[in-house]
Design a protein around this nucleic acid. Structure first.
Length: 503
RNA sequence: GCUCCCAUCGUCUAGCGGUCUAGGACGCUGCCCUCUCAAGGCAGAAACCCGGGUUCGAUUCCCGGUGGGAGCGCCA
């Protein structure tokens, strides 16, 4: 128990702003008539916020919002071995980045051990749970035997009717007395009616030898105490559902509505792992996606509303319905995310996009204060890149005058023939009364015409001079953003470069 | 092995027995536009897993197969 306390203390210390003290009614709810909708997201803090988790969180969030209900965040940290304060922060950070705000929580299960113990005692007292003294060795052997007989491994109920309490110092776990016959029907909102035979289930452990509660039990107690009305979670939990429903009923509570959403697979259709694909939400930020794009992408993965592809958060809230969820697993498709991301980079307020863009500039050690305003760069670059990370890379020349020129671009455009063109450009640009894109365009076009050259013969050497590459926004726009002073310096530099090549 | 879930273009999906010679989107291909890269416009290739039923009629309903996936812990 002492490590429990120390872990929660560490969590509280690391995330003081979030370390809310849980307050629940001390008596379990026995009726939920006309309850307002309440959903929850209940991740276990063992790593990062998984993209699949983010999607079920989004669905839960949308459903609660849609129905004027509330959305609860609960941290399932009963696994003291694997839960870490860093992982808790990673989850909170991911939620915050996505903008999925919760109305209640985060609640920590490690702070509710007293409550779980109380319920365990209640079940014990009512004869709905019992102490089991079977050794791990015996259970292991049992499992092996059953496997050998091609049976599903499960507890044989050895201690079920012992009716014995552990002697002082004696090790014992507590098991739930699952009904021996009959069936449990899950009226799942996405999978439909799923029937489980109680005979397939066994008496699961609800308290370990050290007295700590186990997952399937804490979930039940929390969903009950927190008055969760709709449980939207990954379909890997579908098989746990009948057990949870049985415990809930033993506690005198009717189960919530369940909706088991399919899992997300990587681009190869395999299970998502840190190796094969971006599994963590924060990786998407790092790759340069906007939260709006990620949210829009996730909501369309397994959910649809006719042919509509673009959804603002408000639209999602207005249109989301569990009935429209798909029941099959879906694979990630990053190129679609990229398309959405570009859409949002182009259509969202440039000031807003620039806030995220600045972060990516920062990652490249670019200080935008000695260059064009980031929102301006966002406006001219959004059409030509898929991510903010790409944008930061492609926009670097706006903030740093090129020190060298891309090999191929230089060979093709920085030729002796370009010298007179660049010289004339330099002269006429420096004489320009107004530094605006239209004025710049006139100069470039006039030089092309008078020299009997195509626009490319003029714009390309200039582009290489200014950007160091053969790719940039339209040349007039590029120069406008770069500014006159810097443009002239860059032309001088490239002229020197060409002459040096000759010499 | 047992239990449970799933199955429409490469991918996300629409379809809720006839309107399907199966629609949209991303991606892809071609053309147009063009100072580069894009963006944009237009056109195009591309799917109902297989086999049985039910029905006047199945992509849609039922069963079986096959193929994926999940669960079967003193993990969550």
């Amino acid at each position: 128990m002492s490590d429990v306390l120390s872990l929660t203390a560490v969590i509280a210390a690391c995330a003081p702003a979030f370390a809310t003290i849980p307050r629940f009614p001390s008596h379990p709810l026995t009726s939920r008539i006309a309850m307002k909708v309440k959903t929850r997201f209940a991740p276990s803090p063992t790593g990062y916020l998984h993209i699949g988790g983010a999607r079920t969180a989004l669905f839960s969030y949308l459903y609660a919002r849609r129905h004027g209900g509330s959305f609860v965040l609960r941290i399932e940290d009963t696994d003291l071995e694997r839960s870490t304060p860093e992982a808790v922060n990673a989850i909170l950070e991911g939620m915050a980045w996505l903008g999925l705000d919760y109305d209640e929580g985060p609640f920590y299960q490690t702070k509710r051990f007293d409550r779980y113990k109380e319920v365990i005692q209640q079940l014990l007292a009512e004869g709905k749970a019992y102490y089991c003294f079977c050794s791990k060795e015996r259970l292991e052997k049992l499992r092996e035997e059953q496997m050998a007989q091609k049976l599903k491994p499960r507890y044989d109920g050895c201690c079920r009717d012992l009716g014995r309490v552990p002697k002082p110092g004696e090790e014992a776990v507590v098991r739930f007395k699952n009904p021996l016959d009959g069936e449990v029907v899950v009226e799942d909102r996405v999978k439909g009616r799923v029937v489980f035979q109680n005979a397939e289930l066994d008496d699961l452990i609800i308290a370990r030898a050290d007295g700590s509660p186990t997952y399937n039990f804490t979930v039940v107690v929390d969903d009950m105490d927190m008055e969760i009305t709709h449980v939207i979670r990954g379909d890997d939990h579908l098989n746990n559902t009948p057990r949870q429903m049985n415990i809930l009923r033993a506690l005198g509570v009717e189960p919530p509505v369940y909706a088991h959403v399919p899992m997300i697979l990587d681009e190869q259709g395999k299970k998502l792992s840190k190796r094969t694909g971006a599994a963590s939400v924060m990786e998407y930020r790092d790759m340069g996606y906007l939260p709006e794009a990620v949210l829009n992408y996730l909501v369309r993965l397994g959910w649809s509303h006719g042919d509509q592809e673009i959804f603002s958060l408000d639209e999602m809230i207005a249109l989301f319905d569990i009935e429209d969820l798909n029941s099959a697993a879906s694979s990630l498709n990053l190129s679609k995310l990229a398309w959405l991301n570009q859409h949002y980079m182009r259509t969202l307020d440039p000031q807003y996009v620039a806030r995220h863009f600045r972060w990516h500039l920062g990652r490249r050690d670019i200080d935008p204060s000695n260059g064009p305003a980031p929102e301006r760069v966002v406006q001219v670059m959004a059409d030509r890149v898929k991510t903010l990370a790409e944008m930061a890379a492609a926009a670097e020349f706006f903030y740093r005058e090129p020190q060298e020129y891309e090999e191929k671009a230089a060979r093709k455009n920085l030729t002796p023939e370009a010298v007179p063109v660049l010289e004339e450009l330099r002269q006429r640009l420096s004489a320009l009364p107004e530094w605006t894109a239209p004025a710049i365009h006139e100069v470039v076009a006039a030089i092309a015409e008078s020299g009997g050259l195509g626009m490319g013969k003029v714009a390309q050497p200039l582009r290489v001079a200014v950007s160091g590459t053969s790719v940039s926004p339209p040349i007039d726009v590029t120069l406008d953003v770069v500014g006159r002073e810097s443009t002239l310096r860059r032309i001088d530099r490239v002229l020197a470069y060409i002459r040096a090549q000759q010499g």
